[in-house]
C-alpha cells in the first residue's frame, strides 16, 4: 500500500500518464488491514473503550459487564459477517469503473472475513480468557512507550 500510491505519482509525473489502478488497489489493502487489524486489536485489548466506570465496580458487576461486552462484540461480529457476505454477494456482479476486471464484491470481502476472525477471537476470549498478555501481542507493549494511539 505504501508503495502503490507513490508508484501512481511516479507514473503520473515521470512516465507521464495517470494510472487508474493504484487508487482502488491501495484502498482495497487499507480495508483489508482495517478489518483484520481490528480483529487483532480486539485480541490485544487495544480498542478505545471507556473503562472508568467498570473499573470502579464490584467484581460481580464487573463480570456481568464483561459478559455483556462479549455479547455485544458477538452481535456486531455476526452482523458484519452475515450482512457483509450479503453485500459481497450483491455487488459481485458490479465492477469498479477504474478496474473493470475487479468485482466490487471482492473489495468488500475483508469486512465479513475480518469479522469472522473477530468472532473467533471473541469466542476464544469467552472460552480461554483474555489473550491480552499473550507474548505475540505484548511484544509491542514495551514498558514506558505506550500505544501510539490517536
Amino acid at each position: 500500500m505504501c508503495l502503490v500510491i507513490p508508484l501512481g505519482v511516479f507514473a503520473r509525473y515521470v512516465l507521464g500518464f495517470g494510472a487508474q489502478w493504484p487508487e482502488p488497489i491501495a484502498i482495497l489493502m487499507m480495508v483489508l488491514f482495517t478489518f483484520f487489524g481490528a480483529a487483532a486489536a480486539y485480541r490485544a485489548g487495544a480498542h478505545i473503550a471507556v473503562q472508568m466506570l467498570t473499573d470502579r465496580m464490584p467484581a460481580v458487576l464487573r463480570r456481568a459487564c464483561a459478559g455483556f461486552v462479549h455479547l455485544a462484540m458477538l452481535a456486531v461480529s455476526v452482523f458484519v459477517l452475515v450482512y457483509g457476505f450479503k453485500l459481497v454477494q450483491g455487488t459481485m456482479g458490479q465492477t469498479l469503473s477504474e478496474l473493470p476486471w475487479l468485482p466490487v464484491g471482492i473489495t468488500y470481502l475483508a469486512l465479513p472475513l475480518g469479522s469472522l476472525v473477530t468472532l473467533l477471537f471473541v469466542l476464544e476470549h469467552v472460552v480461554f480468557g483474555s489473550q491480552h498478555a499473550r507474548p505475540v501481542c505484548t511484544f509491542d507493549h514495551e514498558p514506558g512507550v505506550a500505544e501510539e494511539a490517536i
Binding site: M30, F33, A46, I48, D140
Partner: peptide, 13 residues
C-alpha cells in the same frame, strides 16, 4: 505491526 494496529483502531471507528 504497531502502526497497522493503531490505524485499524481508528479506521474501524
Amino acid at each position: 505491526h504497531r502502526t497497522v494496529k493503531t490505524v485499524s483502531i481508528v479506521m474501524i471507528l
